[in-house]
């Protein structure tokens, strides 16, 4: 059997909220060491990768590896039943046809249970090799989210440039061109690999979808290397990581 309990169920709710506009049907892999999920968006230019380690759960038991095919759209509807401060328990039998979700308030006088039907999916699994990212930056997730939203009003595409002393987000649209440059000496941002600079362009529409995860972590880590998808990574406190990958664009 499989059973995983999180004291703060809103974390799981936030994760589902943060991926539901990117991926619809996914396989969640439950193993004795934790839960993971990897799925591409319908146009195959973005990829979501989630890993939650068993240590972060209040209770975790998984007797054998299970693949839980689930509609994220439907799971997001069920997550509406999770209230602030509720715990959440996910459980199923060894050959499951549904996943049971139990939410309980702190006083233990209100329990909500819902069985979500599982589906069989033929999903492609992509192997992501160990990549040496030449540019990495960690910045405030709220600031990154705000910046992407504001730039999207000006352009569909943003060019990222990360150097030794600054990170620059440049846009060019019908109304003109401009950039936001953040010095790395400022508290908001810091580079860990100062030696190289990479410039890559990305679709702001996707970055805005990724930024739905900003409430999961105060910080976001951006990793880039030439001709490689951008990695936008949120650390989910003591539980694991939510990573988004985005293929770069060619600017004409």
């Amino acid at each position: 059997m499989f059973e995983a309990k999180l004291t703060d169920g809103t974390i799981f709710k936030k994760i589902i909220e943060a991926i539901k506009d990117l991926v619809t049907d996914v396989n969640i892999d439950a193993t004795p060491t934790g839960l993971s999920l990897q799925a591409m968006d319908s146009s195959h230019v973005a990829l979501v990768n989630l890993h939650l380690g068993m240590e972060g759960f209040e209770r975790y038991r998984c007797d054998r590896n299970l693949t839980l095919g689930i509609s994220i759209t439907n799971l997001a509807k069920v997550m509406k039943l999770v209230n602030q401060n509720d715990s959440i328990t996910l459980k199923c039998e060894d050959e499951p046809t549904y996943l049971t979700i139990v939410c309980q308030n702190q006083k233990h006088d209100r329990t909500t249970q819902f069985n979500v039907n599982l589906i069989t999916l033929d999903s492609e699994h992509l192997g992501i090799p160990e990549t040496e990212y030449t540019s990495e930056i960690t910045m405030n997730s709220g600031e990154f989210s705000k910046l992407c939203k504001e730039l999207y009003a000006l352009s569909e595409t943003v060019e990222f440039e990360i150097s030794t002393t600054f990170v620059k987000f440049a846009v060019e649209g019908e109304i003109g061109s401009g950039s936001i440059k953040i010095q790395t000496s400022a508290d908001e941002a810091e580079t860990s690999r100062p030696e190289d600079t990479v410039k890559l362009s990305f679709a702001l529409r996707y970055l805005n979808l990724f930024n739905k995860a900003y409430s999961l972590s105060n910080q976001v880590k951006l990793s880039m290397a030439a001709e490689t998808p951008l990695v936008v990574e949120y650390e989910v406190e003591s539980l694991g990581t939510l990573k988004y990958y985005l293929a770069p664009k060619i600017t004409d």
């Binding site: 492609e124 192997g127 595409t157 664009k249």
Partner: peptide, 14 residues
């Protein structure tokens, strides 16, 4: 502008 490639070009299907 367009995409350089979809994810399949970067990562191997396993």
């Amino acid at each position: 502008s367009k995409y350089q490639a979809t994810m399949e070009r970067y990562y191997k299907t396993i």
